[in-house]
Structures are given as structure tokens and as C-alpha cells.
């Protein structure tokens, strides 16, 4: 059973690092991470803004229940960042089409 592995840090140089983009900007992710984790570990903690009050949102429930973490992945809108594993070359966009703008 794998648990958290404290002390594990990843950088561009780490062999096997996954390259993705967020709103066009390149990001390095750890293989097996979900998109939410890739964003958060790159310092991006909000990537969507709400329809009514334009408030920023990111991860909340962490398990696919709340839909707060929606992103567009490779053009496919409204995917849950906490459920989708990063893949090499993935293009992630934070401004979901139901939103006015982004945090």
C-alpha cells in the first residue's frame, strides 16, 4: 500500500516529470498526480470564478463531489481537476465556459 511519501519533491529535471500547460503556461507535474494537485503544487490554488459573484474557486471536496474544481482539459469543458490524472502534453484551461472570467 503506498501512502504519502513525505520529502518527495519534483522539478523539471526529475526523470519522468510530466509537462502540461495551464492557460498556455508550461507546468511540471508528477506522474500520477491529478490536475488539482499539479496546479496546487505549482502555486495555483484557484482556477475558476463563480458565475454570480465572480469569486475564485479551486479544490474543495477533493473527491469529485462538489464540482468546484472544474477545468477544461484538451478542449473538453467542465472536467473535475481532482479526478483527472495528468498526462504528458495536456492542455488545461481554468476559465470554464460557464464563467465570466478567472481568478
Amino acid at each position: 500500500m503506498s501512502t504519502h511519501s513525505s520529502g518527495e519533491t519534483w522539478s523539471v529535471n526529475t526523470p519522468g516529470a510530466v509537462n502540461v500547460s495551464f492557460d498556455g503556461r508550461p507546468l511540471v507535474a508528477v506522474p500520477g498526480q491529478n490536475i488539482g494537485a499539479a496546479l496546487v503544487s505549482n502555486g495555483i490554488t484557484a482556477w475558476r470564478s463563480t458565475r454570480k459573484n465572480a469569486r475564485p474557486r479551486g479544490l474543495f471536496c477533493g473527491i469529485g463531489v462538489c464540482f468546484d474544481c472544474l477545468v477544461t482539459v484538451d478542449g473538453e469543458a467542465n472536467q473535475r481537476a481532482c479526478l483527472v490524472e495528468v498526462q504528458e502534453g495536456m492542455e488545461i484551461e481554468g476559465s470554464c465556459p460557464d464563467q465570466g472570467g478567472r481568478a
Binding site: S2, T3, H4, S5, E8, V30, G32, Q33, N34, G36, A37, V40, S41, L59, F60, C61, G62, I63, C66, C82
Partner: peptide
Amino acid sequence: AAGGIQAFIKANGI
């Protein structure tokens, strides 16, 4: 969510 943090750690190792 507290469990969300737990899930985050377990799934991502960070």
C-alpha cells in the same frame, strides 16, 4: 473538506 485533504495526500503523495 477534511477528507478531501486526506484524499489529496493519499492520491498525490504531496
